[in-house]
Design a protein around this nucleic acid. Sequence first.
DNA 1: TTGACGCCCATAGTGCCCCATGATATCGAT
DNA 2: ATCGATATCATGGGGCACTATGGGCGTCAA
Lengths: 152, 152
Amino acid sequence: MNRFLGHVTNRIDAKGRVSVPAHFRSIIQAAGHTELYALRSLHLPALDAGGPELLTRFDNHLDSEDPFAETADDMSFYLHADGGFLKLDGDGRITVTDFMREHTGISSDVTFAGANTHFQMWHPDRFEAHRAKVRQRLAEKRRQENLTAGKS
Amino acid sequence: MNRFLGHVTNRIDAKGRVSVPAHFRSIIQAAGHTELYALRSLHLPALDAGGPELLTRFDNHLDSEDPFAETADDMSFYLHADGGFLKLDGDGRITVTDFMREHTGISSDVTFAGANTHFQMWHPDRFEAHRAKVRQRLAEKRRQENLTAGKS
DNA sequence: TTGACGCCCATAGTGCCCCATGATATCGAT
DNA sequence: ATCGATATCATGGGGCACTATGGGCGTCAA
């Protein structure tokens, strides 16, 4: 299985390091990478991380935009300039930088959450809050659809 | 027969493991899988479990969505981050994690219920309650239809 | 010198593999 | 039809391997 799925919470040690879940690591290694690329999510207090191919999904989307439009420039800047690298040590750990803490509020623990082609890093509490909100939104949407369909 | 049908209740042992019913297992193995993927149902205190292809039909739908839209993010989050893996051991058992217990209330026994393309896992009592409620709803609906049809 | 970082090894917990046992079902022979 | 042999399955438990985590030590740069 070559997909990032599920979620795990790991602790940051006294030296500011945290283990990337073994399952995620094996996917990264299978792709032949020794470092990760991370973006600060636009809408969420989380980091999107993965191999360099993390960008291709967004690049494809960019290609379909007008290259002279301002939003395309902004997006390109966001993708290529605002990210950062995460170096994996010999034991599959990364050091948590201020770059990460500022945006996510991460302090002592990190929740790693799969996102199919890449994964996310969260403060555990914020992850839980977001999870609850997403479930609630989806349940609500489903209820609306049932109403308009009139069926059961 | 390559469909998940019927229901069986098995006990969780002292190490927190439970046997997946042999009939379900044979379907999974025929599909060539050694691990399952499980989602917490949005509207029921149950888990939807099956092979990873449980996701593919959603993934295809997601690929055609705008990667910056919120609904697509919600859907992706639910499918990829909110789920969890269930690893089958050599004897066809899975370990029951807190992830499962919280959502389902499962404690000492698990009811496996077929759902055609996948299957569900329930607390036996809740399964029975749900079963009774479904039967009652269906009977009620049938009665309504008989009335409006003006039959008998 | 001091602190950040990379590389190394130690350890505890737990997840996974393997084998044993008893219950139940299937089938064959008498 | 009865009884016994065999296969299949749920359940139990021992023990190893791997992972997360902690910490030592050398290197390099400020």
